[in-house]
Design a protein around this nucleic acid. Structure first.
Lengths: 235, 235
DNA sequence: CCGACACTTCGGTGCGGCTCGAAGCGTTGT
DNA sequence: ACAACGCTTCGAGCCGCACCGAAGTGTCGG
């Protein structure tokens, strides 16, 4: 078996509790320093440093030196997706019970996934934009292809979403992407637009991020406004 | 960090070279015995036994006792998907080169993924069925929803595909499902129909499975017949 | 120029777990 | 009933690696 090493190396890199904790901490898309990560993992700085070197060697994280601080972030969305899927498998309580793992109710409801909104409200956002015809989900052969319709583009601007999406920005990042939610097992919106919409939510004050957590805490007024603005029907 | 243990445990279960080799060997969907798996992993039987116990405890494989033989298979498609994604991450040659890892050209062209056809020909099959209107890819909110159209159902029967899909079979397995290909980064057909079509290919003699490998070896005549039968346009 | 700070590298320690030999079930076939 | 076979459990050896203390590099502030 000469095919296995790469997959085994990567899995084993994720497999250590301290490294897994670091990766989970990075899943909110922020870049954290080595010291911060050592705290969340519960190990000393020098131990964390070796862990981070390992994760970097495996291509799971990227480093970003800035003065005397070294920031670390996930290497890309594909890594975040892998971790989500891993959580999905870990959450099920053996022998395929139907219920999808709740973990934390707040986490289920609304959380950050890399840089966009996930959870029930993330799914509701995707559904709403799609039902309104703002989002076109194309039956393309490429992985589920999502794009903004022309009327949708205008609608988003009318809603006050600065959609600053320079088509020729040179970045290879897709404008929209569908991301599978591990708690709800349904699609939510990722990509540049997903990021912009999350920023919109935070700027409007509808919800705010809970420090050191992936949870996005919506006020009841904020949630109502959010649903009214983006989702076709009320809950 | 109390959230990490499950994901770390699962990842570390996959992370051992011997266990990874076993899982990869199981990715073709067959159920293998403990001795066969010990050979592919290159360890003794008793070592393999403990590895298999670990994988079973983590819910990654299922066991199936039959007389004095114990058969092992992947616990489900979700596990196979996770492994595919892991391969996708492992295949890239550091620092995001554009080329998707070829590994083996034959493997890229046509291989078995759990129980259905993947690789270039798997993608071509999906494209062809979709372009002919046999497959409807719905922009649903559930993970990319694929189903067979009414005319498509008749077309498949006309093509000689025994589509024996008892709607009320009680099994919760979806009729069709879209599975992401790690080599081509495009969708191919999974689910019950994907399984039936792979069987169809093998029964027609268009291609045959290479023993102890995931490769499906198409004869040139078989490939032509396959494309003519299912795909809208020739290559 | 020097101290404070963030981070990494270097040795040494200790535990976990991968491994295999030997022995213990359960099944199959004669 | 006995031997052959497949698999698992038990015990011991041994390597790897996670961990931390101490020392080394680079950066910021006074």
């Amino acid at each position: 078996m000469i095919e296995s090493p790469p997959i085994a190396r990567i899995a084993s890199a994720i497999g250590d509790p301290a490294r897994a904790a670091m990766l989970v901490a990075l899943m909110d898309g922020r870049a954290l320093t080595a010291t911060e990560l050592s705290n969340t993992a519960g190990v000393t700085r020098q131990t964390a440093s070796s862990h981070l070197a390992r994760l970097f060697d495996e291509g799971l994280i990227q480093r970003h030196r800035q003065g005397r601080h070294h920031y670390f972030a996930l290497a890309g969305e594909s890594v975040a997706q892998l971790l989500e899927q891993l959580m999905g498998l870990g959450g099920r309580p053996r022998c395929s019970t139907v219920a999808t793992g709740p973990s934390s109710p707040a986490l289920r409801k609304a959380r950050v996934c890399y840089d966009h909104l996930a959870g029930d409200l993330g799914v509701a956002l995707f559904d709403g934009l799609h039902q309104r015809g703002i989002l076109l989900v194309e039956p393309a052969t490429d992985s589920p292809h999502v794009r903004v319709s022309e009327t949708g583009d205008a609608a988003l601007r009318a809603l006050g979403v600065e959609q600053e999406l320079p088509a020729a920005s040179g970045s290879r990042r897709p404008q929209c992407r569908a991301c599978l939610d591990w708690s709800a097992r349904r699609l939510h919106l990722a990509g540049r637009l997903g990021q912009v919409l999350l920023e919109h939510v935070l700027r409007k004050g509808w919800g705010e991020r809970v420090p050191d957590s992936r949870i996005v805490d919506f006020s009841s007024r904020g949630e109502a406004a959010f649903l009214r603005c983006f989702c076709a029907r009320e809950f």
